[in-house]
């Protein structure tokens, strides 16, 4: 071993040592934020703040789907024409083709197409107080997301996780999220176009 290789070895070792050392960032010992999140959340013990006081007066119910539990707003108290059986005391077919005044004249379905969807795809003509699945099982109005999830499985998965839809109250536990019909009118679920909330006239000036 000559002097040269010793010197090279020394340099290599120093550089290695330095690079290992310098991986330790100034204040953090992590390479990137993902690593930091993974390491730190192993010791996660919970937080002292809570969203509880920010739900205002929204009535919430707890749901549990495939091991994920969270709160969603109650719907039955919000639907004006509920309970439906106040009028729908007899099966729908007995009500139709009579000279009863049109009651739901304002409801028009703009959702999928006529082959896929009519009123009784979702509503139960035998018992209007419940929604119905494609296989004619009861679905509670408070659990209308189960109706939607039959056809929109991907959106439903994202909603459960929190990537689709919206959390209300705050980020702190417990989690409360809007349900599908808070954002989508089931009869016409698309989001409309509208004018933006603001226009910056100052920027226009700056650009001229």
């Amino acid at each position: 071993m000559n002097k040269h290789t010793v010197a090279i070895q020394f340099i290599v070792i120093t550089v290695l040592a330095l690079s290992i050392y310098s991986c330790k960032h100034k204040e953090d010992e992590y390479h990137n934020v993902i690593e930091k999140i993974e390491a730190k959340s192993k010791e996660y013990k919970g937080v002292t703040v809570s969203s509880e006081s920010y739900f205002d007066n929204i009535e919430l119910i707890e749901i549990s789907e495939d091991g994920t539990s969270f709160l969603i707003p109650d719907r039955k108290n919000q639907i004006q024409s509920y309970a439906c059986t106040e009028c729908h005391s007899k099966p729908l077919q007995d009500m139709e083709n009579t000279d009863l005044k049109k009651a739901h004249w304002d409801i028009e379905i703009v959702h999928a197409n006529e082959n896929t969807m009519n009123c009784t795809t979702c509503h139960n003509p035998e018992n209007m107080d419940n929604l119905k699945s494609l296989t004619s099982n009861h679905i509670d109005f408070n659990a209308s997301y189960q109706l939607c999830s039959q056809c929109h499985t991907k959106q439903f998965e994202d909603w459960k996780g929190g990537a689709h839809g919206k959390e209300i109250g705050g980020w702190a536990p417990p989690r409360a999220s809007l349900t599908c019909v808070n954002c989508h009118n089931p009869h016409n679920p698309a989001f409309g176009t509208k004018w933006p909330a603001r226009f910056n006239t100052q920027k226009i000036k700056e650009r001229k």
Binding site: V33, I37, K40, S41, Y44, G46, V47, V49, S50, S51, Y54, G161, G162, A163, H164, G165, K166, E167, G169, G170, W171, A172, P173, R175, S177, L178, C183, F191
Partner: peptide, 30 residues
């Protein structure tokens, strides 16, 4: 414990905010 004002105001749910250290948070799921 609240969400930032932008998150709260968004009508589409395009904005997700939360605690990265909480393994059960929605931000972590995303």
């Amino acid at each position: 414990g609240k969400n930032p004002a932008c998150v709260e105001a968004c009508p589409t749910g395009a904005r997700v905010f939360g605690n990265l250290l909480d393994p059960n948070s929605t931000i972590r799921w995303v």
